[in-house]
Nucleic acid binder design. Sequence first.
DNA 1: AAGGTAATCAACCGCATAGAT
DNA 2: CATCTATGCGGTTGATTACCT
Length: 556
Amino acid sequence: MNSLPNDSDKRMIPKDQIDSPSIEEGNSSGSLNGGNQVLKKGPWTSAEDAILVAYVKKHGEGNWNAVQKHTGLSRCGKSCRLRWANHLRPNLKKGAFTPEEEQLIIELHAKMGNKWARMAAYLPGRTDNEIKNYWNTRIKRCHRAGLPLYPPNICYQVSCENQQSNHSSDYSYNEKQPDEFLQGGNLDIPDIVFDNYTNNGSLSYAPPFPDIAVSSILSQRFGFQNYALPNPTVCCVERPDETEKVVPASNGTDNDGCPRLDNVLFEPSGKMQESFGLSCLYDPDSSSNSLAHHGGATGSCASLNDTFSASSLIPGTLKLELPSLQYMETDSNSWLACSSTPFDLVNTYVKSPPTVPLQTDCVSPRKSGLLEALLHEAHVLSSAKKEPSEKISISFVTPTDMADCPELSINDSKLVEHKDPVSPLGRSAAFVFNEGTPLISGNFLDELPHPLASSNSDSILVDAEHVSSPNLGEKDISYCRDPFRPDALLGSAWLENSSQNALDHSVFNDAISILLGQDLCYEHKPVPAETSSGVMQGFGLKSCPWNNMPSACQMP
DNA sequence: AAGGTAATCAACCGCATAGAT
DNA sequence: CATCTATGCGGTTGATTACCT
């Protein structure tokens, strides 16, 4: 054990400390503490480190303010603690993050937001400062590259975990031991099964509205049995701690696990907004499409200083932690059109952004043949207007397309069989309801929760191999997996425009009228604007239809 | 080679919170 | 119960290094 200067000899500064930039020569950067001793600022010297290490070895961590007293170290306790925590404590892992760590960080951030300390707990040997720096760098890279921060697989994975955590209250994400996160399994792209996609924290917003399992209604009315509507956390994941604050999830679901429409429709506190973190996209004034009032300059919602978090939106102050979509440069087709897994794509791209616009590198969505399928499907739908009572096949993939895209063949039968409205292009129910006519105060999306999609367990099955498949199908499935990902929706919107609003609104006018005419319309009318906006800010879908997105978010 | 810019890292600052007094 | 103190956390800034023109 190193001997430490005690109180009696605390003025005995080691030689190397004297040699180092000292108090005397650092007056300009120092400050006086209570004892009129100048506290040094700036980089630590090795001598200071040694002193601090010796002190901690002797006295243990904590009581940092005593360091100066006991060692004569001209550093404030805060600085000592920081130095120890970030650089001196044992088992610190130095060097660049490994790919596994990077992915874990992304995943954790999608889950936690800017909770660096908590994230660091899952990364042994890493400090919150490192993670924070990494993330800030990533933000810059993504921003510059015009890519979203979160790969779709991460978004979806997190949403699944949220869901699972609500299924299993005794084993939540947050309770996992850090080691579990680096063992790889958790980082694997899960087999995407939109299974039980209803009982999650997002459903815990439980305003007092009638129990309506919208999915079941839709199923009855339209044969939509498998809305693969992910919970809101898909796009922007609520923070676990926030989740914990809200009403238990059980209040938000029917017994069969279906989300209740009311749960998400009328969240008065803007919780959904927080959860989705899409408020930037939402403009209460639907006519304006302006984003500026949220602090984002037109065409650029996100400033560099905005720390992008999936979740932490502060109502009112709107300290933007924007979802990935809100990188205005984001090419809506970035996910769609590039090969390799989304995660790999992002990380590769982010690390080495191409010097040419991304879209020029990427395959046009048309080349997939899926857009044609979409257009064709939309055309068919537009021809089939006013038939809401009939089953509507909104499988935007024709058998021919399936044949052309073997990647999509998996479970394609289910997609068709169940008349799943989720298109491989992300034309999920978001699309449907966006296209669908508003009811009372705007788009139907104003009122309709995503989690209404009580997708059956077999509604959409997307295997990880397909997700990661570097083929066209994978691109589309990435949307499919994550249909409410803002960028996915943006992409959808883009396609939507391409298809000239092919899907007739009237189909859903009727449907919605049927759905909501008795209960929701009645209940909904008085919803104050704030409430409504809060909800839809959460969804990011309110009066900012995705097909308007290009005007708000200029495509590169 | 020099200057400019971006990236990275380290550290500081302010605020929030818990515990002690 | 109010105040103080220590600690932790997140945001921000500054210094250094790497890269580009």
